[in-house]
Simulated scan of single mutants.
Amino acid sequence: MNREILLELDDLLLAERELTGLLAAIQADEREARMLYARLQDWKGQSALLLRDEIEVFFTEIARRIQDIEQQKRVLVQYVQEMKRVDGAS
């Protein structure tokens, strides 16, 4: 029984590392997008306004998704800690 728990725990720890990597990649992409967005400030006209509005929606959505992933990671970390506690108690 104990070996099964350890294997599952290893899988969960791998998932935590993968979430960390995903967050880092998304945040790096967001920084790059913000640098590109800053270049658009010189653009004028209706199409520039529409593009800026669309990009701002993108930034809002990416921020929401980052928060969702961070929340999922927090829940995963809490679950891993609980598994370690329960495994140590048996």
Results as ranks from 00 to 15, higher is better:
Ile66Leu: 12
Glu18Ser: 09
Gln41Trp: 08
Gly45Leu: 12
Ala89Met: 13
Ala38Pro: 04
Leu23Ser: 06
Leu36Glu: 12
Gln67Cys: 00
Arg34His: 03
Ala24Trp: 03
Glu82Leu: 14
Ala33Ser: 12
Leu7Phe: 01
Glu32Met: 04
Arg85Pro: 02
Gly45Asp: 04
Phe59Cys: 04
Asp10Ala: 11
Glu16Phe: 03
Leu49Asn: 14
Thr20Pro: 07
Leu51Asn: 06
Gln27Tyr: 01
Ile26Val: 14
Ala25Val: 05
Val77Cys: 03
Ala38Met: 05
Trp43Thr: 06
Arg74Lys: 15
Gln41Ile: 10
Gln27Val: 02
Gln27Lys: 08
Ala63Gly: 03
Leu12Arg: 05
Glu8Ala: 08
Ile5Gly: 02
Gly45Glu: 03
Leu9Met: 12
Leu40Gly: 15
Ala89Glu: 15
Ala38Asn: 08
Ala89Ile: 08
Tyr79Thr: 13
Ala15Ser: 08
Ala15Thr: 11
Thr60Leu: 11
Val75Met: 12
Ser90Phe: 13
Gln67Lys: 13
Lys73Tyr: 06
Leu40Lys: 10
Leu6His: 12
Leu14Asp: 11
Leu14Ala: 06
Asp29Tyr: 10
Gln27Arg: 08
Gln78Leu: 10
Ser90Asp: 13
Leu7Ala: 03
Ile62Tyr: 09
Leu49Val: 13
Ile62Trp: 07
Gln67Trp: 06
Glu56Asn: 14
Ile26His: 01
Arg17Gln: 14
Leu36Lys: 13
Leu23Phe: 06
Arg64Asn: 06
Arg39Thr: 02
Asn2Asp: 14
Asp10Leu: 07
Ala89Ser: 11
Arg52Gln: 14
Val86Cys: 02
Leu19Ile: 05
Ala63Tyr: 00
Gln71Ser: 15
Ile26Arg: 06
Ala89Gly: 02
Leu51Met: 11
Glu16Ile: 04
Leu76Trp: 04
Ala33Arg: 10
Arg64Met: 05
Val57Trp: 08
Ile66Ser: 00
Asp10Pro: 05
Lys44Trp: 07
Ile55Met: 09
Val80Gln: 06
Gln41Thr: 14
Gly21Tyr: 04
